[in-house]
Structure formats: C-alpha cells, structure tokens
Amino acid sequence: MSERPVIIIRRKKRGGEGHHGGAWKIAFADFMTALMALFLVLWMLANSGEAQKAAVAEYFRTPLVVALMGGDREGASENVIPGGGPDPTFAEGERFRIDPQLASRLVDEQERARLRQLERRIREALSINPILKELKDQILIDLTPEGLRIQLVDTEQRPMFEIGSARVAPYMRTLLRTLAPMLNELPNRIQISGHTDSLPYAGGEAGYSNWELSADRANASRRELIAGGLALEKLLRTSGMSDRIPFEGVAPNDAANRRIAVIVLDSRFADSILDQREYGPLPGTGDRQATDGAARVGTGPEAAKP
C-alpha cells in the first residue's frame, strides 16, 4: 500500500491591525460639533450686554413652557389643548394672558440693567475723583427689592456729619453734589433716609432726639443733592429712622449706624408709594372704614366752623 503525501495548509491569523469600522468617527464628529457650539455660546455671552445676559440666565432658570404659560399648571400639563380654543397648540385664551406677563418681565429686566449701569457710572466717578476715592470704603452700593441703594456710612476717623449735628462735612458735600447729575440720568424717583446710632441725647426722646437728628441729616443731604443739580420732581420721600434699623453685623453704638441711604427707587415700588398701595387697608375693612367715616361727618368741633 502506497503512502499518500500529507498536505499541510497554513493560514495566517490576522488580529489587531485590521480595520475597526467607522462608529468612532461619528462619535468624534458629534463631540467636536458640541464643543464648537459651546465655544460659540461662550463667545456670544462675552460680547453681549447685561440685559441679554439676564435674559439668558432667566431662560435657563425657568423651563420655556412654564415661563410662557406663567406657571406650572397649564404649562406643565401634557394635555394637547391646555386652555381650549380653535388652535389646539396655542389657544387664543392663553395668548392674551401670556403677552402681558412677558412684557412685564422684559420691563423689569431692562430697569434692573439701567440701575446696574448707573451703579457702574457711580463707581467710575468715585475712582476718578481723588477726594472721593478716599471714601470708597464708606460708600456701599447694592441692588435691593426697592431699587439701587447708595449708603454713605460714618467712621470714627471720617464722619459724614459733625457729631450730634446735621452740619454736612466738606467731603460729604462733594460726594452728594457729584452724585446729583448721575441720579438725573434715570427717570426713577429718589428716596433719602437718615439713620443714627443708639447713643441717646441727655433729655431722652422727649425733646430733640435721634429721631429729629436722623430726619435733619436726611434733609441736609436732600439740600446738597439739589444744590448739585438734582431735579426737584425726582424726590419722592425723605425720612428719619433714628436707630431703628441698625447696620447689619455691628454693635448698636457703632459709627457705621450713622449713615444716609439714597435709594434710586424701582418704578413699581415708587408707584406703590404714590397710589398708597403701601398703606392700603386690610382685606375686608374698606366697607367698615367708609361707614365709620360717614358716621363721623359733622360730629367734631370743626362742624361748628362756617
């Protein structure tokens, strides 16, 4: 029996160096697109103003649907027809409710942007004037619900007024007269309040006291602002608060309590003062007050006057 030759076939194994497919390229392209979009957004924010930045921040703070609907009731609903009407995607009844809310929010953002711009103008003016530059630690500026608040604070070394008096120090006069033209740049009304420390007068509150002193200092500041060019119609209110609102974080007798607060009022807050919403009657008391007023007609001693 003859032997057949043995045939051996050797196959080369391929591993590692072959083609891997194109899925990674798609993932990489998506990543680069997202990165480019990120840098584009950052570039746009860097070149936008305060109003645009505030609008972007508000957009990311509130979901779009909820913001448009003015709340989380209809806006968060999954119902296709949230408010009824001929248009299933945007009901006419919802349209008239949304537009005033968006307009009001836009007005608020624009006013806040103007107040921030005024704050920057004031800080720039203070940094330029060599006399006022020394007072930078005594001038505190911040935004409050009432508006832009400018506080002029005393120190033991540099008081804004003579001790126990409403006589304005020279640098305080320069500061107020510098502020006056800038306060005229906005149509907003102005409120001035005076504050004192808790050190009492010898006669207590029966005679001349911190109440009178704080009010006198507020009015002295008002006169200096007017002398600096502040428009008379911009002044809405001056008040003396005595020591009832101490400066945050200091002792009652600390010099920081002796201060003047000039507030550029938010227009809605000023309107609430003018139409007396700030002092409105308690709910349910309007009819009773009207009845009481009618009952008092002709009963006082003034009724005898011709």
Rank of each mutant, 00 (worst) to 15 (best):
M1D: 07
S2E: 12
R4W: 07
V6D: 09
I7C: 02
I8T: 06
I9M: 06
R11S: 09
K12C: 07
R14D: 05
G15Y: 01
G16F: 07
G16P: 00
E17T: 13
G18I: 00
K25L: 14
A27R: 05
F28V: 12
F28Y: 08
F31Q: 11
F31H: 10
M32Q: 06
A34D: 09
L35Y: 01
F39R: 09
F39E: 12
V41T: 01
L42F: 09
W43R: 14
L45Q: 03
L45M: 09
G49S: 02
E50A: 15
A51D: 00
Q52K: 13
K53Q: 12
K53M: 10
R61G: 06
R61W: 07
T62Q: 10
T62M: 11
P63S: 08
L64T: 14
L64E: 07
V66E: 13
L68I: 04
M69I: 00
M69Y: 15
D72N: 14
R73L: 03
R73C: 03
G75P: 01
P82L: 02
P86A: 12
D87V: 08
T89S: 05
F96D: 03
D99E: 12
P100E: 01
Q101E: 01
L106P: 00
V107L: 11
Q110I: 13
R112A: 10
R116N: 02
Q117Y: 08
R120H: 10
A125F: 09
K133I: 06
K136W: 03
D137L: 05
D137S: 11
I139E: 05
I141H: 06
I141C: 08
P145W: 03
G147Y: 05
G147E: 06
L148N: 04
L148M: 09
L148P: 00
Q151W: 05
D154M: 09
T155D: 09
Q157D: 03
P159C: 02
P159I: 02
F161A: 02
G164N: 03
S165N: 03
V168T: 05
Y171K: 08
M172K: 04
R177C: 10
L179F: 04
L179C: 08
M182C: 08
E185N: 15
L186W: 14
Q191P: 01
G194M: 01
T196L: 01
D197L: 00
L199F: 04
G204M: 07
E205W: 04
N210S: 06
L213R: 10
A215C: 01
D216A: 15
N219Q: 10
N219D: 08
S221F: 02
S221E: 02
R223K: 15
L225A: 08
G228K: 15
G229N: 11
A231Y: 10
L232Q: 15
L232R: 15
K234L: 13
T238G: 08
G240L: 08
S242T: 00
E248M: 13
G249L: 04
N253L: 02
D254H: 07
A256T: 02
I263S: 12
S267G: 04
R268G: 04
A270Q: 12
D271R: 15
S272Q: 14
Y279I: 14
G280C: 10
P281N: 14
Q289I: 12
Q289N: 13
A290G: 10
G300L: 06
G300Y: 05
K305S: 12
